[in-house]
Amino acid sequence: MSSLEDCKLLFVDDEEEFLGTMAKYLRRKKLDVATASSGRAGLDWFGNHPVDIVVLDMKMPDLGGIEVLREMRRLKGEDFGVIILSGHAHTGLALEAMRAGADDFLLKPCSVENLLERIDLLRDRLLERRSA
């Protein structure tokens, strides 16, 4: 991964309009973005494709973000980054996400620019982690 264009991103969120809008803007920035509109669909896609960063909604009706995150970490360890999105500003949720293996936590709605900044920072940390 040498630039954001090389970053493979999976965006999982049950709010399909938000998901579609964010994915469209991220693709305009040349990111390789796959989407899933449920936790289960996200896990299915994740298990069969290479992923550098997952952007994961905290609250979804089928599988919650924490449950999905734990299963993703079980499947592929620490070789990818995770940014959790939540519509609820609650310190306990952020701590729970970080304990489960999230690398970052953002409140929804977030701007594309803010998300891109976080993706870029996380990508840099992944590069350092992989080269260590």
Rank of each mutant, 00 (worst) to 15 (best):
D32K: 14
D32L: 10
V33S: 02
V33L: 04
V33P: 01
A34W: 07
T35C: 14
T35F: 04
T35G: 07
A36M: 10
S37Y: 09
S38I: 07
S38L: 07
G39N: 08
R40Q: 14
G42Y: 04
G42C: 08
L43V: 12
L43G: 08
L43I: 11
D44S: 14
D44F: 10
W45F: 15
G47P: 06
G47S: 15
G47H: 10
H49D: 10
P50W: 06
V51P: 02
V51D: 05
D52L: 06
D52P: 05
D52S: 10
I53V: 15
I53E: 03
V55N: 03
D57P: 01
D57G: 00
D57Q: 02
M58P: 00
K59D: 05
K59F: 10
K59C: 06
M60T: 02
P61Q: 13
D62S: 09
D62R: 08
D62M: 07
L63W: 08
G64A: 05
G64R: 04
G64Q: 03
G65I: 01
G65Q: 00
G65Y: 00
I66R: 02
V68L: 01
L69M: 07
L69E: 01
E71I: 12
M72S: 08
R73F: 01
R73D: 02
R74K: 15
L75V: 09
L75T: 11
K76H: 13
K76G: 10
E78D: 15
F80T: 01
G81N: 04
G81F: 01
V82C: 08
I84G: 00
S86F: 01
S86N: 06
G87L: 05
H90G: 08
T91F: 05
T91L: 11
G92C: 00
G92A: 14
G92L: 12
L93D: 13
A94S: 13
L95Q: 12
L95R: 12
E96S: 11
E96A: 12
E96F: 00
A97N: 06
A97M: 05
M98H: 07
M98D: 04
R99I: 00
R99C: 00
R99F: 00
R99M: 08
A100C: 07
A100D: 03
G101R: 05
G101D: 07
G101Y: 03
A102V: 03
A102D: 03
D103M: 03
D103A: 07
D103E: 12
D103S: 11
D104A: 10
D104F: 03
L106T: 05
L106F: 03
L107Y: 08
K108M: 09
K108T: 09
K108I: 05
P109A: 12
C110H: 08
S111W: 02
V112Y: 05
V112N: 11
V112A: 15
E113Y: 09
E113M: 11
E113N: 14
E113S: 14
L115F: 08
L115P: 05
L116W: 05
L116I: 13
R118A: 06
L122R: 06
L122A: 06
R123Y: 03
D124F: 06
R125L: 12
L126F: 08
L126S: 10
L127R: 15
L127K: 15
L127Y: 09
E128D: 13
E128Q: 14
